[in-house]
Design a protein around this nucleic acid. Sequence first.
DNA 1: GCTTTTTACTTAAACGTTTAAGTGAATAAA
DNA 2: TTTATTCACTTAAACGTTTAAGTAAAAAGC
Lengths: 351, 351
Amino acid sequence: MDDDTQKINMKALAKALNLSTATISKALRDSYDISEATKIKVREAAERLNYVANAYASGLRSHQSNTIAIVIPEIADSFFSQAINGIESVAGNKKYHALIYLTHDSYEREAAILNEFTSGRVDGLLMSVASSTLDTAHIGKLQKAGIPIVFFDRDCRQIPTASVTTDDFNSAYNATCHLIKQGCKNISLITVQGHVSIFLARKDGFRRALEAGGITPLPSNFVYCPNKYSDESIKLIGNHLNEVQPDGLLLTVEHLSTAAYLAAEEVKLSIPNDIKIVCFTNQITAPVLNPSLTTVQQPAFAMGQKAAELLFEYLSHKYIQLEKEHLVLPSMLVVRGSTSPTSDNKKLTQL
Amino acid sequence: MDDDTQKINMKALAKALNLSTATISKALRDSYDISEATKIKVREAAERLNYVANAYASGLRSHQSNTIAIVIPEIADSFFSQAINGIESVAGNKKYHALIYLTHDSYEREAAILNEFTSGRVDGLLMSVASSTLDTAHIGKLQKAGIPIVFFDRDCRQIPTASVTTDDFNSAYNATCHLIKQGCKNISLITVQGHVSIFLARKDGFRRALEAGGITPLPSNFVYCPNKYSDESIKLIGNHLNEVQPDGLLLTVEHLSTAAYLAAEEVKLSIPNDIKIVCFTNQITAPVLNPSLTTVQQPAFAMGQKAAELLFEYLSHKYIQLEKEHLVLPSMLVVRGSTSPTSDNKKLTQL
DNA sequence: GCTTTTTACTTAAACGTTTAAGTGAATAAA
DNA sequence: TTTATTCACTTAAACGTTTAAGTAAAAAGC
């Protein structure tokens, strides 16, 4: 049994085979100037002795880490977890490693995290910007330092690089039109604080749809909640329901669905009879909520996947120009009970 | 403006200050043999010139990566995403980086991932084992190679190291007792395929509770679904509902809740009147499902946090012996509509 | 006033790879 | 046969840190 679990390095492997480390290194990287016979011998010995090249030595010498960073606001949200699945599905295949960082939507954290990346720790960056980020100098600086960045979902227009987003304006527009079509006359947008592209786009889409429907949006129709699930959101929405008495709600983030449902229950409003609700969310429980929830479902997995593909495409050979790549994947309005008059019909509409 | 974004290394910084790299290195690591005045000068210059030490050079030289790996089966599950939040809350503070790997419950992937860690890429490992893992040689080998491991949620008894789990046996036992108390006489366990500790413990707890309640569990009361959300699960559960006609279900994984609700709907069974349901899940939508779902809620965040704390405790000074640390955090049975006779009372019971 | 200790540095080796440049033998070209 | 080329390696430098060992000057001890 060759169960030598003591760590073996390239030198030891070389000595064992009576070869130089250069030969070992080249053999393992399948260099053309090593004979096939030697390559086989080396690979076999490496396998047998359980040799794995030291990542830090390789990284130092070759100036590449085979590692990317995923920087996202939070993880307890099905959009982001599905997106990570998408990212992982391509990173894993490409033998890349993925570091994960949560900004909790804080600009300071985001800046501190990005600043670290000057250390050469990562070859590239997949990110969804924090909602509190206004100043983008930290991102620009990293980019100037030569680290390629691909934005997904929440992009940052000031930084000229690739982005993979979904059509937030249209999604919000169509979702709002749907509410109007279902008879709503006093629709509110429940969203989160922050300066993020997607929330602005959703707000715009909402506003335009109202105008197109002959409804003038009032300032009182906009509610800003903290961007994480909390009792405060429930209270804010509850108060809003009491004061403004909307008959329709468009929720821009997943965690607001639970908050809105609970608030409606507290205020004794029946969904969809008294108030109809649409939410941007990917949660799989949407069809089994009480009532089932009409959602704007985003292509989370595909967005993560595409973003990762763009980054790896760039990293493997710099053929593509990242600043020219802007993918917009369609979201889907999935109509369910929370917006139907009768509360149990289901259908799918492609946006 | 010192906006020199070209990468600066320690040598350049040393030259700029007319000092040796040794002095810079020591100053930045706050070594006792550098004067306070010099330290201040160095720190100031490093800040000003935007110097960040090369992670790969430091890693190579010092034999530590300041990086840990998180190896989990999947991420689109609130338990795991909340656990990652917990891990991140301590890793971020300790200036550690976290690599994330998904096994998708495949032993082969898990083994391949762990094998890579011999490369020195990580200082330690936080993991929840794949459900298809039977042979644990890959884990043992890594441990023998000197990489500390802390299991969370799904541990692996064969490997003598720390674990942070929740009391799955008791949770399942109590959940099952609750179903019996609510009048169920023919209760089925809907679980997933695999050999994982927690599922075995949940099954045992279920079985024992039935026996304690004078009910003999039949083989037909056990349904094994694939461990990811899929139509197949819905079909399997639907068939089971038709054939065995249970009046109570204990679901061992989050994604089964949606599947079970949809299956019940398809088969035209009313929850909780025809069938009562309890599910192991942390999803925040549980209270707004139709009907609200009685859950076994696990301390996911705390488990991630504790696991990370144990690992960092060990890494920072090897005072603790990992193999002696076994935390068991309590889960909570949260009773809701899916198990109440009247369908809308709520209460909390500590397990 | 001489020795010892302390202070605040510097020198240089080492970490484990990768790779440009070099080499000697075999083969091909002339 | 001589020269050029190819093949299959080896040598050694380099990547950017950390740190053990060394040092010269200042401070302390006697």
